[in-house]
Simulated assay, not measured.
Amino acid sequence: MVLVTGGTGLVGAHLLFHLANKGLKVKAIHRKQSDLRRVEKVFSYYSNDATALFKKIMWIEADLDNIPTLEIAFTNVTHVYHAAALISFDPRNYKKLRKVNVKGTRNIVNLCLAYGIKKLCYVSTIGAIGRSINGESMTEETEWNDAHTNVYALTKYDAEMEVWRGSQEGLDMVMVNPGIVLGPGFWKYGSGKFFSIAAKGQRIYPPSGTGFITVNDVVKMMVSLMESPIKNERFIAVSENLTYKKVVAIIAKELGKPGPKNKLKLWQLEILWRLDWVRTVLTGKERKLTKNGVFSLRKRRVYNNTKIQKYFPFEYESIEEALIFSSKHFLKEVS
């Protein structure tokens, strides 16, 4: 039996669909306030039998810091996909991020060891990949440097250290470091905001770019690695290195909106992150732009995705086609 954490998120929901569609026995943990209907909605994008597939999932209410409930989830499990994480770039949330991302991952690793789990797949982020200082594309071996790193990436890197510690203690594991994951269903969070921004016809766009990948490619890579003899390795999961302008432009076209036209200057961003700090102080709301966030926009980051090809052929799906597919569902659900 397979256990999935983070099943109510973009990657987790698509992973659950893939596993259920393969006929595997699957458990998934969720928090009390999780919206399971959104997961079933994701299933409906790809199947006319979404409800039946969704009912095959054995849902267990559990938190990553609640060992007794996690132990219930681990019963009779042989393989674990750990995709759960708290995503925030607000420095004020650092302690919360450590509790979920680091301590939560430590708990998962320890339970994997205690229950003799055959293999663990951990979903990290390209934010935990080191930054190149000479302009070369970044690989899994690029040296880590925490200078100017956002709080989310800091905690995901420390979570990786927990997974590597598990591998040294006898746990077989694989790790994927996805770029920005694109896919349908979660319009208010993460990459879903690209669709919301495009829908508003916003003409300004941030400079630079980064690595992108479709959610189905992330899932395909995770499952392929888990079913292979590969162990104790991590892989960058990026299909294309694109500018933010390019991604928003594709979506805007599909939504019938004008595309981005005016690039934000770095001096403007320096002013904006300071204004955002003031807004947060006055209102208590979540930070939208931070100093480290602006630093990341100073230089386009390019990621090398060839390592996976050394182990088995891996063909990526088209980012543009995935954005078109997602845009159609966005129009049906939000417009």
Rank of each mutant, 00 (worst) to 15 (best):
G170L: 10
G170F: 06
G170V: 10
G170C: 06
G170T: 08
L171P: 07
L171N: 09
L171G: 07
M173Y: 15
M173P: 00
M173C: 15
M173E: 05
V174M: 06
V174E: 06
M175F: 02
V176L: 09
V176D: 04
N177H: 15
N177R: 03
N177E: 13
N177V: 04
N177T: 06
P178F: 07
I180K: 05
I180V: 14
I180W: 10
V181W: 01
V181M: 02
L182M: 13
L182Y: 08
L182G: 00
L182A: 01
G183T: 03
G183E: 04
P184T: 01
P184M: 02
G185K: 02
G185N: 05
G185V: 00
G185D: 01
F186N: 02
F186G: 06
F186A: 04
W187I: 06
W187G: 00
W187K: 03
K188A: 13
K188V: 03
Y189N: 11
Y189G: 00
G190P: 03
S191E: 07
S191A: 12
S191P: 04
G192N: 02
K193Q: 14
K193V: 12
F194W: 09
F194P: 03
F194Q: 02
F195D: 01
S196L: 13
S196T: 08
I197S: 11
I197H: 12
I197G: 01
I197M: 07
I197V: 15
A198K: 09
A198L: 06
A199Q: 13
A199I: 03
A199L: 07
A199G: 06
A199P: 08
K200P: 04
K200W: 08
K200N: 14
G201F: 10
G201D: 13
G201W: 12
G201N: 12
G201T: 12
Q202M: 14
Q202F: 15
R203N: 08
R203I: 13
R203P: 00
Y205L: 11
Y205N: 09
P206G: 12
P206M: 14
P206W: 08
P206Q: 11
P207Q: 11
P207T: 10
G209V: 11
G209H: 13
G209Y: 13
G209N: 12
T210S: 11
T210M: 08
T210A: 03
G211L: 07
F212D: 08
F212Y: 14
F212L: 11
F212V: 09
F212I: 12
F212C: 12
I213D: 05
T214M: 02
T214L: 04
T214D: 06
T214V: 08
V215R: 00
N216I: 09
D217W: 01
D217G: 03
